[in-house]
Design a protein around this nucleic acid. Structure first.
Length: 414
DNA sequence: TCTGGGGTCCTAGGACCC
DNA sequence: TCTGGGGTCCTAGGACCC
């Protein structure tokens, strides 16, 4: 059997963890740049605040608003995941707030699930829902039911319990069926997950939704097609991109931003011991300004041989930027993607390439060590700029990094 | 005024090979 | 009149996930 454990209103719950005055209040967490709503407490959902709406459109009366604080959420996530790992030798961490667990089918699964919930509640203080079923897609469905019903735990362990759950589940709630497909399915009279499994054939699904649709269809019928990936496969690409706090038409601003994204991306892949074969740069104007002409260039360059060298990566990104930049536009967002990642110790050199010099490798190692110890960008290439950065993010409402930063740890006065 | 960031997989079509 | 058969690789775009 497979369990899907999912934290309730995760980001909002993390905020309330160290700010008890938020408990019982409508809490909303905003995306980077304080743009739109990405998480809501139960109370905020009850007020009818939708997911994804721009922050300026919501009625903020009586609502506690926070900027996103990923240092905090990541740390809390790690605590939850380590507890769940105690319940099964095989765990797949699927996202920051949920994981799959492989469970034996000859134990009392309901008792185990309640035990997980109680342990996480006691040791971390976060509420979770647990869905248990024979396949991942059904475990997702059971988790949906666990939340929807308020029971917190739901188990699909018989034909009857499966049929009943699927009959009560709208197609658009199925894991793997998104907006486009659910619209089409409903137009064909397929309303529920049960309709999806019983009203249409495998061939029909293959034709309309390709092989991925067929997998979902089989999984809902109880046949496992999506395996538990307890060994994380290596990343194939990584991206760093940001919307700017304000638009800019200055090449110098874009250079600083792009250099900073390129540096972050390089640090990420070095941490994962990977090297990139390609780099993609993109930047664009404000898509929401329908009244203005848009400009959205992008370009991809292959490295001479795979690299994770910050300096090479920054230089390549800046060369592309200078070639694509046009001064007559106001830019709102930029990003750098490193692709075709390969293990750094298996890099295949080209005939005329001797690889990175040992001195350069030492320099990068030293920079990573200093920045790890003293904070991001303590030492950095000068092209990232110093002083004010008009393009920087708005993040005015961030709570403390209570668990990862000594200066921001909670103070308790007795 | 104001709208996030980071991933994966699949398919079709083009370019190319012999 | 009439022009093969069998592959691979790459890319863009779409759909999905959180």
């Amino acid at each position: 059997m497979i369990a899907l454990v999912d934290c309730n209103n995760f980001y909002a719950s993390c905020e309330a963890l160290f700010q008890p005055k938020l408990i019982g209040k409508p809490v909303v967490v905003l995306s980077n740049n304080d743009g739109c709503v990405i998480a809501r407490s139960a109370e905020a959902k009850a007020l009818g605040i939708p997911m994804g709406v721009p922050a300026y459109q919501i009625d903020t009366q009586g609502v506690e608003i926070r900027s996103s604080n990923f240092a905090l959420y990541g740390d809390i996530s790690g605590r939850v995941m380590r507890i769940l790992a105690r319940f099964s030798p095989r765990q797949e961490i699927y996202s920051i707030d949920e994981c799959f667990l492989d469970l034996p089918d000859d134990i009392d699964l309901r008792t185990l699930a309640h035990d997980m919930r109680a342990t996480i509640r006691r040791e971390v203080g976060i509420g979770v829902g647990v869905g248990i079923a024979p396949t991942k897609t059904l475990a997702k469905a059971a988790n949906w039911k666990a939340k929807k019903s308020g029971a917190g735990v739901w188990v699909i362990d018989s034909h009857k319990s499966r049929q009943e759950l699927l009959a009560s589940m709208p197609v658009d709630e199925i894991w793997g069926v998104g907006r486009k497909h659910s619209k089409r399915l409903i137009s064909w009279g397929i309303q529920t997950a049960l309709d999806f499994t019983e009203k249409v054939s495998e061939v029909w699904i293959q034709e309309k939704m390709s092989i991925t649709g067929v997998r979902t269809w089989k999984e809902l019928r109880g046949k496992p097609c999506i395996l538990l990936e307890d060994i994380t496969p290596p990343k194939k690409s990584t991206m760093v991109s940001r919307t700017f706090g304000t638009g800019t038409d200055r090449l110098n601003d874009l250079e600083e931003a792009v250099a900073s994204f390129a540096l972050s991306a390089a640090e990420k892949i070095r941490k994962d011991k990977l090297a990139a074969n390609t780099i993609t740069l993109f930047f664009h104007t404000d898509f929401h300004r329908k009244d203005r002409e848009q400009y959205s260039p992008s370009g991809t360059t292959s490295f001479f041989s795979p690299t994770n060298d910050s300096f090479t990566i920054i230089q390549t990104a800046l060369t592309m930027l200078r070639g694509l930049f046009r001064p007559e536009f106001l830019y709102r967002k930029a990003g750098v993607m490193l692709g075709n990642l390969v293990p750094a110790d298996e890099v295949q050199l080209t005939l005329f390439d001797t690889g990175e010099s040992p001195a350069r490798k030492q320099l990068l190692l030293a920079m990573d060590a200093v920045n790890y110890r003293f904070g991001k960008e303590t030492v950095k290439p000068a092209v990232l700029g110093v002083g004010g950065k008009p393009w920087k993010l708005k993040q005015s409402l961030r709570s403390g990094r209570f668990t990862t930063c000594w200066d921001e740890i909670v103070e308790v006065r007795v």
